[in-house]
C-alpha cells in the first residue's frame, strides 16, 4: 500500500528507498504479535478467541508524538476540537494548545485524549486502534511467557501497577517489557481500544457478558462476576470496568492509547 502510493509521485529508486525507510521506522516503533488465542473475561461461553497476527506499538503514544499530530492537523488542537469529538477536559494538562510541556513531558504517554482523537491519530499514521481482543491478548504476556493471566503473582503485580496515581502512571518507561517486546501495557495509563464499548457491563454491572436470553439473571447483583470467564482475575475486572465507564468523548488524565496495524 505504502509502496504503491509512493510510486505514483516518485521515481522508482527514490520510492523504494523511501518505502524501505518508512518500513524501518514502523518496524522500530512497533512489534509483531504472532497469532494466538486468549480467553476474554467476558465472552461467548467463555470460549477462547482466536486473534490473528498484528502489529502493536511498542510504547503508548507520547505527548511529543501527539503534539506533532495537532501541529499538523489544527482540527484536533485543544480549543479547536469539535465538542462532538471530545469533552472539555481534552488535553487539559498541556500548558497551551501547541505546548505539551518541557522535554521530559514530551516523553510521557499522552492522556486526556478522547477515543475519537486517539482514533484520528492512528488513522493519520495509516494505522488504527487495537481491538479489545488484540489488546488483552498482548497484555496477558509477562516478561517470560505469552500467557501469564492465570499466574497469581503476575496478577498481584498488575494490581500494584494499577494502584498508582495518574501522575505516576504517566511516567515514561513505567511497567515492564513483555515477551512480545511491548512495553508499559500495565504500568502506564489505561488505553483506548477500537471496540472499548463491546462489553455489556451496564452502570450497575447487571448485564455483563450476557445475551438477552439471560435477562432474568441480570436482576442478580453479582451477575457481572457470574458472567465472567474467571471471577478471580481482578486486574481484568478493573480494565473492563474502566472501559465500561467510558464513552467516546471521555477525556481522563489516566487514559491514553497506542496504535496497531495489520501484520
Amino acid at each position: 500500500m505504502l509502496l504503491v502510493t509512493a510510486c505514483m509521485v516518485l521515481p522508482p529508486g527514490a520510492a523504494a528507498a523511501q518505502a524501505t525507510r518508512a518500513a524501518g521506522a514502523v518496524a522500530a516503533r512497533t512489534v509483531a504479535i504472532p497469532a494466538g488465542a486468549y480467553r476474554p473475561l467476558y465472552g461467548a461461553d467463555t470460549a477462547r478467541v482466536r486473534v490473528p497476527a498484528f502489529r502493536l506499538d511498542r510504547r503508548a503514544v507520547t505527548r511529543g508524538e501527539f503534539l506533532d499530530f495537532v501541529r499538523a492537523d489544527s482540527a484536533w488542537r485543544r480549543g479547536r476540537v469539535r465538542p462532538v469529538f471530545a469533552e472539555a477536559g481534552y488535553l487539559a494538562g498541556w500548558p497551551g494548545p501547541l505546548d505539551a510541556g518541557g522535554p521530559a513531558d514530551l516523553l510521557r504517554p499522552v492522556t486526556a485524549v478522547s477515543w475519537f482523537a486517539a482514533r484520528a491519530y492512528c488513522a493519520s499514521r495509516g494505522e488504527r486502534l487495537p481491538t479489545t481482543d488484540e489488546w488483552e491478548y498482548a497484555a496477558q504476556a509477562s516478561e517470560t511467557v505469552r500467557d501469564a493471566s492465570r499466574d497469581r503473582a503476575f496478577r498481584d503485580r498488575l494490581i500494584a501497577l494499577y494502584a498508582a496515581p495518574a501522575g505516576e502512571r504517566t511516567r515514561p518507561g513505567r511497567g515492564f517489557r513483555n515477551v512480545f517486546g511491548v512495553e508499559g501495557m500495565h504500568g502506564g495509563p489505561w488505553e483506548w481500544t477500537e471496540d472499548f464499548n463491546s462489553v455489556l457491563v451496564s452502570a450497575d454491572s447487571r448485564e455483563a457478558g450476557g445475551t438477552s436470553r439471560h435477562t432474568d439473571f441480570r436482576a442478580v447483583c453479582a451477575y457481572a462476576a457470574i458472567g465472567a470467564s474467571d471471577p478471580t482475575d481482578y486486574p481484568a475486572f478493573l480494565r473492563y470496568a474502566v472501559r465500561a465507564a467510558l464513552d467516546a468523548r471521555t477525556t481522563i488524565d489516566r487514559d491514553g492509547f497506542r496504535c496497531a496495524a495489520h501484520a
Partner: peptide
C-alpha cells in the same frame, strides 16, 4: 467488585 459491587469499581476507578 468480584463479590457483588462491580458498579462501585466502575465508579471509583473511572
Amino acid at each position: 467488585c468480584v463479590g457483588a459491587a462491580a458498579a462501585a469499581c466502575v465508579l471509583v476507578t473511572a
